[in-house]
Nucleic acid binder design. Structure first.
Lengths: 227, 227
DNA sequence: GAGATTATGTCAGCTGCTGACATTCGGCAA
DNA sequence: TTGCCGAATGTCAGCAGCTGACATAATCTC
């Protein structure tokens, strides 16, 4: 199979144009099945309470096979998030050059959430289940840790994209790093503020929440707040 | 002993004024010994390559006892960092009200690094070893994950301190959260940029680096960068 | 010094995760 | 079709992280 634990399937979206062949299809199939089964078990009985053996058994593969698809239990839980993050980065890449870096990032999350609502690829990737997953991550220390690490890795990619976009050297100019870091952290603050009060299925509530947070970045840095 | 895995010793800096008694002293003693031994082993042979048994053996206690002091292997590695973070928060608390929130945070890290250079509490808590530790954390996925999680917990405390300081409601006003998040992430970006080029033992090099990053927060958010 | 607390040791056991090797299955050409 | 090659999977053994339960030894309190 693919190199050790490079997320096999979604990383190679058929570059060659050739249809994938049975082997590839089966791989993607079991991988998707593992993700879905894990997701379901996790949300049903909790992350720590679900063993890898259970997940493997649910898909009828050996535990060893599970670990050939995912480096660890965290990874299968964060698989859908990883897809969403990659999509976000793709959005940033395709943003018109007329937008400022900050505007480009801002427009990209909005677009990402909307796209997520439109395309329901895996069948479990809807907005509501993404929000459920997000909540579970925040509530599960191990997962939160792994997630945060992933996020910082993605930030490095964003730094490169931003630097290239604006034609600056990311090793010389600190702005790409600083912006990526600040933006990402505010985004997470928004996620943390999320409470599934009203059963708003769409992504608009989350988008509004994110907007409100980003709007406060400038004011938060400015002098005193009140008195 | 103390409640399950509430960092026993440093959390209670003798509130009662009474001198601690033999039992308490011994507890702190073995705890410090564990931290120091672990630190040494980690830096010497790597985090993953060091087993808990080794650490316990080095201090001549059972593995079980180790896990009564630290919830997991990560925790012992991050113990010194945790102390530093607590000190930082204490600095923020004591910052004069005249400073703006952002200024208060900024002054507090500077002060924290300087204080670290001055007071060499545990004997292993010097600036150089703090920087070594920081590097090790960034290089060790598991540790990085655990560290990031800790940082976000500390951010919640900072949110409360800032909100109280400025007299705003953190559940209503998003600025405390946003500022804490942005500040923390930029701080980490600075840590990541650190490279131990010149053997600058003092904290001044790191302080300068942090300053440069914080200076870029405004510019990074502003329109386009160049062209 | 006796009894109550509390830290520690010991032991058994589960779960996450990995290397090594055998086996089966899909891809491809004679 | 046949038969071979390589890739995916299964099986097995084993280590390391971590935990509950119970016994023992140390400290504290009176």
């Amino acid at each position: 199979m693919a190199a050790a634990h490079t997320p096999a399937a979604p990383a190679a979206p058929d570059t060659t144009g050739r249809l994938p062949g049975l082997r590839e299809r089966k791989k993607r199939q079991t991988r998707d099945a593992l993700v879905q089964a894990a997701h379901q078990l996790f949300l049903g009985q909790g992350f720590a309470e679900t063993t890898v053996d259970e997940i493997a058994a649910a898909v009828d593969v050996s535990q060893r096979t599970f670990f050939r698809y995912f480096a660890n239990k965290d990874e299968v839980a964060l698989a859908v998030m990883a897809d969403a993050e990659n999509h976000f980065i793709e959005c940033v890449r395709q943003r018109p050059a007329g937008e400022s870096p900050f505007e480009a990032l801002r427009a990209s999350i909005v677009q990402s959430w909307r796209d997520l609502a439109t395309a329901d690829r895996t069948g479990a990737g809807s907005v509501t289940s993404a929000l459920e997953l997000l909540r579970m991550i925040e509530e599960t220390p191990t997962l939160l840790a792994a997630h945060l690490r992933r996020v910082t890795e993605q930030e490095r990619v964003i730094v490169r994209v931003l630097a290239e976009r604006e034609g600056v050297d990311p090793d010389q100019d600190l702005r790409p790093r600083v912006l990526a870091a600040a933006f990402g952290s505010v985004l997470r603050a928004a996620h943390l503020s999320w409470t599934p009060d009203h059963e708003d299925t769409g992504p608009e509530a989350m988008i509004a929440l994110i907007d409100r947070h980003l709007d406060q970045l400038g004011p938060a840095l400015a002098g005193h707040w009140q008195h």
